[in-house]
Amino acid sequence: MVTVRGVLDDAGMEHGIPEISLGSRAGECATEYEEVRPTAFHCEGTIHMPRQWVLSDLGVNEESHLVLLAHEYGHHVQRLSGVLRASAERADESAESFPESLRGTRRKELQAECFAGMFVARAVEDGLLDRRRAVRLVETPGSAKMADTHGSPANQRRWRKAGFREGSTSACATWTAPNDAVR
């Protein structure tokens, strides 16, 4: 299996374990999320999963928490590989075209879903998660709550399954996928 770490090593890029914050204070990142309160988010190398927000939005379902963590880890990989920076630059260029800007956001979010699938596959490979439970995690439909920015529930599942099944960053090519695969 090709791992994200292996790809980053081969490209001479840094990798590392992100910080994880369960508190509701996000420091400098908080200004980005003052109006919209996401369940969790990644900012500057830290995965923020405020306990109150996660419990309020997802309840005590551990599997939902794991999928959320895996998705945010996908954003961490995007940050390390330069995808988040390139995505922000692309968003600035397409700011005049709202539909195109929104499509770019979905491409970024769905790639994070694909990386989440790779995260879950690696957890199975490392013996941290049993395969049956992992398959259930990747088969779970995504959330319709933020479909405009994160893609349809079916596409969230589609990309998560691709990352899990293929275990390769090439399976996560949302940036070149047809528009219907990122709606």
Results as ranks from 00 to 15, higher is better:
residue 154 A to Y: 09
residue 168 S to L: 00
residue 72 E to A: 02
residue 23 G to T: 12
residue 164 F to N: 13
residue 142 G to N: 12
residue 8 L to K: 05
residue 32 E to G: 06
residue 107 R to I: 03
residue 166 E to W: 11
residue 19 E to R: 07
residue 156 Q to F: 02
residue 117 G to L: 02
residue 165 R to N: 14
residue 13 M to R: 13
residue 132 R to E: 14
residue 85 R to E: 12
residue 9 D to S: 08
residue 84 L to V: 02
residue 122 R to D: 14
residue 143 S to Q: 14
residue 40 A to F: 04
residue 146 M to Y: 14
residue 119 F to C: 09
residue 95 A to D: 11
residue 63 E to P: 01
residue 31 T to K: 14
residue 183 R to Q: 05
residue 66 L to W: 11
residue 93 E to N: 10
residue 97 S to W: 13
residue 139 E to D: 15
residue 4 V to N: 06
residue 32 E to Y: 01
residue 175 W to P: 00
residue 94 S to K: 09
residue 176 T to V: 13
residue 156 Q to S: 03
residue 12 G to D: 07
residue 178 P to C: 08
residue 42 H to Y: 12
residue 158 R to C: 02
residue 162 A to R: 14
residue 48 H to Y: 15
residue 126 D to S: 09
residue 140 T to N: 08
residue 17 I to H: 07
residue 119 F to W: 14
residue 23 G to E: 13
residue 129 L to E: 11
residue 97 S to P: 03
residue 98 F to V: 13
residue 163 G to E: 05
residue 80 L to W: 02
residue 27 G to V: 04
residue 30 A to T: 03
residue 86 A to T: 03
residue 22 L to N: 06
residue 6 G to K: 05
residue 61 N to F: 12
residue 75 H to I: 01
residue 33 Y to W: 10
residue 44 E to R: 13
residue 24 S to D: 14
residue 58 L to H: 08
residue 144 A to G: 15
residue 22 L to Q: 07
residue 51 R to M: 13
residue 16 G to Q: 02
residue 58 L to S: 05
residue 136 R to D: 03
residue 22 L to V: 06
residue 136 R to Y: 01
residue 21 S to A: 12
residue 97 S to N: 15
residue 167 G to W: 00
residue 98 F to H: 10
residue 38 P to E: 05
residue 5 R to T: 06
residue 47 I to N: 04
residue 162 A to S: 10
residue 126 D to W: 00
residue 152 S to R: 11
residue 163 G to P: 06
residue 130 D to S: 15
residue 50 P to T: 11
residue 140 T to Y: 01
residue 75 H to N: 10
residue 8 L to E: 07
residue 150 H to T: 01
residue 58 L to F: 05
residue 153 P to V: 10
residue 122 R to F: 01
residue 172 C to P: 03
residue 49 M to W: 01
residue 61 N to Y: 15
residue 63 E to V: 10
residue 99 P to G: 00
residue 154 A to R: 09
residue 3 T to D: 07
residue 5 R to L: 05
residue 99 P to Q: 00
residue 164 F to H: 11
residue 4 V to T: 13
residue 42 H to K: 08
residue 175 W to L: 08
residue 152 S to M: 04
residue 104 G to R: 15
residue 103 R to E: 15
residue 52 Q to L: 11
residue 102 L to K: 06
residue 37 R to A: 02
residue 176 T to F: 08
residue 161 K to P: 04
residue 50 P to H: 06
residue 39 T to Y: 09
residue 130 D to G: 15
residue 158 R to V: 00
residue 174 T to W: 14
residue 174 T to H: 15
residue 75 H to F: 03
residue 35 E to D: 12
residue 105 T to P: 00
residue 129 L to R: 15
residue 98 F to E: 11
residue 95 A to Q: 12
residue 177 A to C: 02
residue 18 P to Y: 01
residue 69 L to P: 01
residue 33 Y to H: 10
residue 46 T to S: 07
residue 181 A to E: 10
residue 77 V to L: 06
residue 97 S to M: 05
residue 22 L to F: 13
residue 155 N to I: 04
residue 122 R to L: 06
residue 140 T to P: 02
residue 34 E to I: 00
residue 101 S to W: 15
residue 144 A to H: 10
residue 34 E to Y: 00
residue 121 A to T: 04
residue 9 D to W: 04
residue 149 T to C: 01
residue 62 E to K: 15
residue 109 E to V: 00
residue 25 R to W: 01
